[in-house]
Computed example of a mutant assay.
Amino acid sequence: MRTVRFVALGDSLTEGVGDPVGEAWRGWAALLADGLAEQPGEVEFTNLAVSGAQSRDVLERQTPAGLALNPDVVSVVIGVNDTLRCTFDIQAVAARLDEVYAAFTAQGATLLTACLPDPGAMLGLPGALARPLARRQRAVNTVVHALSERYGAVHLHAAEGAWIMDRAIWSADRLHPGERGHRQLALRFHALLTEEGVASGVAPSPEPEFPAPNRSASLLWLATAGTGWVVRRCTDLLPQLLRLAADEMRHRARGTSARLDLSASHAVSMALASLSVQQEQPDAA
Rank of each mutant, 00 (worst) to 15 (best):
T194W: 01
N214D: 15
E207T: 15
G197K: 08
E209I: 06
A199L: 07
A212N: 11
L219W: 13
R180C: 00
L192I: 13
E195V: 12
W229N: 10
A186P: 05
P213R: 06
G181K: 00
L220V: 04
E179I: 12
T227N: 07
P206F: 01
H182P: 00
P177F: 10
E207K: 01
Q184C: 11
L187P: 01
R180V: 00
E196P: 02
V198D: 12
Q184A: 15
R183K: 12
G181H: 03
F189E: 06
E207D: 15
A191N: 08
R215C: 05
E209M: 06
P211S: 10
L222Y: 10
R188V: 00
A199E: 02
L192T: 10
L193S: 00
A212I: 03
R188D: 08
E209P: 00
L175I: 15
L219F: 11
A217G: 15
Q184V: 13
L175G: 08
E207G: 04
R215I: 07
L187K: 03
T227S: 06
G197P: 12
P206N: 07
R180T: 03
P208D: 08
N214R: 06
T194R: 14
H176F: 10
A223P: 03
S200I: 00
R188H: 09
H182E: 05
G181M: 00
W221L: 08
H176P: 11
P206Q: 04
R180F: 01
W221T: 11
H176E: 09
E207L: 15
E195T: 13
T227Y: 07
